[in-house]
Structure formats: C-alpha cells, structure tokens
C-alpha cells in the first residue's frame, strides 16, 4: 500500500509535466491543426539558459526559474514567427515535417554553438530531500511538481474560461473562421496560443531540468514525445483530454516500471513505447472524442 501511494505520487509528478506539455500542444493543434514536434525546443533552449546562468552566476534557481519560463515563451512564439506562420493551412504532412525541421535546426545550433555532449548544471539542493507523511516518504520534488502543476493548470483553465483572451482562443480552436468573423484577429490568437503553450512548457521545463540537471541538444525530444502522446491519447484538440492524457501516461510509466521484472527494468522505455503503439492501433482517435465533421 505504502509503495502504491509512493508510486502514485511519483506518477502524478511525471504526469504533470506531460500534462503541461500536452495542454500546450492541444492548444496549438486547436488553432492551427499542427502537431508541433518543435514544442520540445521550449525545453531544450531553456535548458541551455539554465546552463548559461549556472555558468555565469552559479546554480541560483531563483534566477533560473523565471529565466527558463521566459525563454520557453519566447522560443514558442519565435518558432511560430519563423516557421509555422508560413505553412498555415498547408497539409498535415507539410506542417508535421516543418515542425521536425525546426527541431533538427535547433539541435544543430546547439551542437555547433555549445557541444554535442550534455552539459551539467547544479540541481537545486532540496531535490533529493524526502518528507514523511504518515509512514510514507515522498520526494519533495514530486510534491512540488504536483502542486505547481495543478496550480498552473488551474490558472490556465481560469485564463481560458474567464478571460476574453482565453475565450477567444477556445473559440478559434473550435472554428477558426467563425472566430475571425466575430472580430478575433488570426495572427494575434495564434501567437497567443503559442505564447500560452510556451508558458506551460516553461513550467514543465523547470521541473524537467530540476530532475535531469543537464542541457543537451536533444534534451526536449523525450518529454516532447510524451507530451504529444498524451495529447493524442486525450483526443488531440481536447484540452481536458490532454491534461488527463498526461497524468494517465505518467502513472502508466511508473507502474509499468514497478511491474517489469528487475532484469528487464532497462526496457521500461521500450515497453512504454510498445504500449503506445498498441494504444494508437486500438484507438487512433484517442480517448476523448472531439466533435469534428467532414462535409462531403
């Protein structure tokens, strides 16, 4: 039981990171029908920002956290400006490959500008501390992740629900042309979606980097893939689905790891991807269905 609870918290902690990424991906998908494989760069670039700061003034996380979030927002908006703006309305094939192109260019830039090898920076001191609650010990980083993730999600949901800006994004995600007819400006709403997605990814990046403590050119790839997977599990385009998909994926990973016999533990990641492949085979449209009618 104790173990179960620990794993549950661990799973929620991971899942929160995926949920933040998936929510951003779902927002972007909603406004421009793009599955953004360059969304991982909102982790890669901040990773180097964190590394740069540690190098310059030491691992001061009071500085790193805001810098990481700002960097993520800027990166997200910049990718839209540099690349995605020009393929708006193109085929899914073209947009997908465009986002891969962005990913590869960013990777190459860091290979060139820094190094192909991973650079380490100091993790926050309290990262390995644990706290005992009723006989169960939890890692503080998990608890903080869960807390902040939930707070961020609540904040995001209230932005999307309560502010005019958020309502406009949701409207545009549902019917882009109708939103334009209501006076919503397409450039602005798409840029806003990228900015908001960048902010969410920035928060995710903070916790991801606290855990890994390293910057490498491909740093964003694995979290990105998990985010994409979570978003698709959630029915791509459904914001609630994306969040649920993220937590579900996190929990599945943790329990799978615990359940696999010791000598196969190294294959957890492989098994996760295998499960994901099976999932898409069985339920390609995800688990939250989005109303979408094709007119013929």
């Amino acid at each position: 039981m104790t173990e179960f609870v620990q794993q549950f918290v661990d799973g929620l902690g991971r899942g929160g990171i995926y949920a933040l990424l998936a929510l951003g991906l779902a927002l972007i998908f909603g406004v421009m029908h793009l599955v953004n494989f360059a969304h991982g760069e909102t982790i890669t670039v901040p990773a180097y920002v964190a590394f740069g700061i540690s190098l310059a003034v030491g691992g001061n996380w009071w500085l790193i956290v805001p810098a990481v979030i700002v960097a993520a927002v800027l990166v997200s908006v910049a990718t839209e400006f540099v690349a995605f703006r020009w393929v708006r309305g193109s085929s899914d094939f073209t947009m997908l490959l465009t986002s891969f192109g962005v990913h590869f260019v960013v990777v190459a830039v860091f290979v060139m500008a820094v190094s192909p090898k991973a650079k380490n920076f100091e993790k926050p001191g309290w990262i390995f501390n644990t706290v005992r609650v009723g006989g169960v010990s939890f890692e503080i980083v998990d608890l903080v992740t869960i807390g902040v993730t939930l707070a961020t999600l609540v904040l995001t949901v209230s932005i999307l629900r309560k502010t005019l800006f958020g309502i406009a994004i949701r409207a545009a995600a549902e019917d882009f042309d109708a939103a334009r007819l209501m006076g919503v400006r397409s450039n602005r709403v798409i840029r806003s979606a990228f900015a908001l997605a960048g902010f969410l990814a920035g928060v995710a990046a903070v916790f991801w980097l606290m855990r890994t403590g390293e910057a490498e050119p491909g740093a964003g790839l694995v979290p990105l893939l998990k985010g994409v997977i979570a978003a698709i599990i959630g029915g791509l385009g459904s914001l609630t689905g994306a969040v649920l998909g993220g937590f579900a994926l996190g929990l599945a990973e943790v329990y799978l790891r615990a359940w696999l016999p010791g000598n196969l533990a190294g294959l957890t990641e492989g098994a996760v991807f295998l499960l994901i492949a099976l999932l898409f085979i069985v339920r390609p449209q995800g688990f939250v269905t989005v109303r979408r009618a094709e007119r013929v």
């Binding site: 465009t98 260019v105 190459a108």
Partner: peptide, 17 residues
C-alpha cells in the same frame, strides 16, 4: 561541426515552406 545538421534541418524547413 554541426553545420551539416543545420543544412539538413534547414533544407527540410525551406522545402516545406
């Protein structure tokens, strides 16, 4: 080093756009 990766990624981007 890395220039050729930029070339590849850039080629993909440019052609897609």
């Amino acid at each position: 080093e890395g220039l050729s990766d930029i070339f590849l990624g850039g080629a993909m981007l440019l052609f897609m756009i």
